[in-house]
Amino acid sequence: MLVSVKVGIPRALFYYYLFPLWKAFFEYLGAQVVVSPPTNKEILNMGVRESVDEACLPVKIYYGHVMYIKDKVDLLFLPRLVSIEKKAYICPKFMGLPDMIRSNLTGLPPVINVDVNAVKGQRAYKKAFFEMGSHFSSSFRKINRAWNEAFKLQSRFEELLVSGYFPLEAIGILESGHKGEKDKHDAAHEIAVLGHGYTIYDNFLSLNTIKHLKEMGAKINTVENLPLNIIERTAAKLPKRMFWTMGKRILGAALYYLERSQIDGIVYVTVFGCGPDSMIADLTERYARRRGMPFILITLDEHSGEAGVITRLEAFMDMLAWSGKNENHFSSHGKLVDIC
């Protein structure tokens, strides 16, 4: 029997957005997918050691995951995610990441290094997958079927997110085949937790922000819980088109939550030195303030401690409870036009 090729996927960055797509694609083509474990101290330390000081925490953690997995696989999946949709990028660091990794880390296995750039149109996205598929199969039809299958799974993943699950839960459901108990407690407050997915859903990185907020009695809503078309429609109202995919989605979600839903406050989780967030978080805060919506910014780096974050979140939740009693933290509900 053929021994299948082991493809390594670092559990970091776009793992939280596209893992089901990647996994299904590679598996359909006969590869065995190996994922690094959830971020831990060892992975963080390796990442911090190997990367430049100025890199942001998620990139450092990505380095750590690559270090962890590189000797355990035949092929390392190291795509250059320039853009996943028309007219929008992800972040300059994503565009240089494969070169940074290659330049800074030694002893890498052979890599699948495809450039994914859909800035000029979605077709390039599919093309990138065909290039990836050619590592495993020479049959166009087989790759095409793998792409279709993978896409189906990714759609199911995104449906789960919209129905209220977070990425790790949704990945678990797809893998085990059955939905677990959704925790249904009475929430005192509804909170929007905004930020880049790989920041807020990596529990080690985010110092369990979501878990703590839940324990403090909050119901959490994230960008991923909103249907994309709604987000896009709201984001289209921005005075200038936002050219970062995640930034656009965060602003779209923020505006949506500000305009109509029963959100009591916004928690924005970011990391030191994040270029896009330095603008997106600031704009979100401005829009929130113009609407009288409570807002808190949590900025993390490798030295942040969980206790400090808990204290700040508690203070925020107390403030909500207090202002909730007075029921006047909402100024008039105007149109979006008034906000931005």
Partner: peptide, 29 residues
Amino acid sequence: PLTCGPEIVAEAILPEIYLSEGVPVMTIY
């Protein structure tokens, strides 16, 4: 400027250029 994304990418790669081209490089933010 500190936190400039494009230049952080470049900074990470400059040591390799020093190794192969042999001219000392320093980064100042």
